[in-house]
Simulated assay, not measured.
Amino acid sequence: MEKEMIRRYVRGEASFEERKLVTDWAASDPQHFKELEQERRLYLALTWHLPEVKTSVADTSAPRGRLISWRRVARIALQAAAVIVVGCLVGTLLYTRRIDALAEQTLAIQTPAGQRMNTTLADGTQVWLNSRARIEYPVLFGRNERRVKVSGEMMFDVTKDPNHPFIVETYACDIEVLGTKFNVVADEANNRFSTALLRGEVRITSRIDGQQILMKPDDVVSLEEGKLRLSHIDDPDEYLWTEGYINLKNKNFYDLVEEFGQVFGVWIEVQGHIEGADRRYKWGKIRIADGVDDALEILQASYRFTYTRNIETNEIVIR
């Protein structure tokens, strides 16, 4: 990717086609995204200062031995003060417009199947994206709120700023936070939404009927038949995916096969009856970095099945 095109993108000068090229390039590889972030931060660093306001004041020096009237001094001082005030107002206006312009520019990240990614937003908020998750966010947050749009599963550790609420927009609900850590699942294709609060306080607002729930730590809110339901976190290890693990506790064969497909980015088909498939694990976890074959071998220790894998089509058939 050409550096000049990337720079045009972060400056907001790229065409629609160029913006699409840059966002697709950044989403294709974590290293590409890091390069884009570096350019963005460099641009912000260079443009963050107010423009200099150059003023000129008429020469007030007087010939030697001649006294300057206090009235003239006062008039010159007032004129200089007026120029400074106008300059500050112009500088502030330009600064505000620059923030608004940057707030209208958006970046998008989508993690490829089978991969995870983490990033830091402009306000210092940490975001971890699970496989196939997507987030859209502005280059610089606006003056009133910090708003992002997400789909898939991700974890947020939000920088506290009471004057600028952080809002996560999903297909089903808006999540409003001040400073907190929480996990969100927003899977519109399967009509699956949930939020688990690990720290802080958030307010969930349904985009369906306006229903609101104020969450406390260890609360879970899920969407069931169009309504929000409040429950509690049964097992904190369920959110170990940010550390590279799949939690086995309380999951049966079919739960894990579905999760393997999502996490490892493969299509898994189950053919026939699997004996004891409804049995649930009491404990255990699988390291994602070991791959799908290792995960299936661990399942074979508890359930009787065989499988074949087609590398070319990225499909697995379990019998």
Rank of each mutant, 00 (worst) to 15 (best):
D255C: 15
Q31L: 14
G276H: 12
H273A: 07
R75Q: 11
W70V: 10
A172P: 14
Q300E: 14
D235K: 10
R66H: 13
R203N: 09
L46Y: 06
V177D: 07
F156M: 15
E153L: 02
K251A: 15
Q271R: 11
H164A: 12
E224M: 07
F193A: 01
A77M: 03
A133L: 01
I6M: 06
L223P: 00
H49L: 10
P138Q: 03
Q38W: 03
A122Q: 08
R192D: 11
A172V: 12
V202H: 09
K216T: 04
R7S: 14
N247G: 02
N191V: 00
K3G: 13
V177C: 04
E13T: 06
V266K: 12
R132Q: 11
T23V: 13
E201I: 00
N250P: 10
N163I: 06
D218H: 08
I135R: 04
L299S: 09
V53Q: 11
G265S: 13
H273D: 07
T170H: 13
R19Y: 07
A301L: 15
K34Y: 04
G114Y: 08
R64N: 11
A289K: 13
N314T: 12
S15A: 03
E269L: 14
G244S: 13
E39P: 02
A289S: 14
E35R: 08
G291I: 09
N250T: 09
K249D: 09
E225C: 02
L46I: 02
K54Y: 11
I109F: 15
A81M: 03
L178E: 12
S131R: 00
N144K: 14
L214T: 07
E136W: 01
E269S: 15
Y254V: 05
L42K: 05
E312I: 13
D235A: 10
P165R: 07
A186S: 13
V83I: 00
L256G: 06
D209Y: 10
C88R: 13
T180E: 02
L228D: 09
A58H: 14
L50P: 06
W70M: 12
V57K: 03
E258M: 03
M117I: 02
L42S: 08
D219L: 01
I6H: 02
R98W: 08
I316H: 11
D157W: 08
R97T: 01
G261H: 09
E169V: 07
W241T: 01
F182Q: 03
I68Q: 10
L296G: 08
D100Y: 10
I6S: 08
E258R: 12
E243I: 07
E258I: 07
L197S: 02
L93M: 04
R71A: 01
G87K: 02
V221Y: 12
E17F: 14
G272K: 04
W128P: 11
R75W: 11
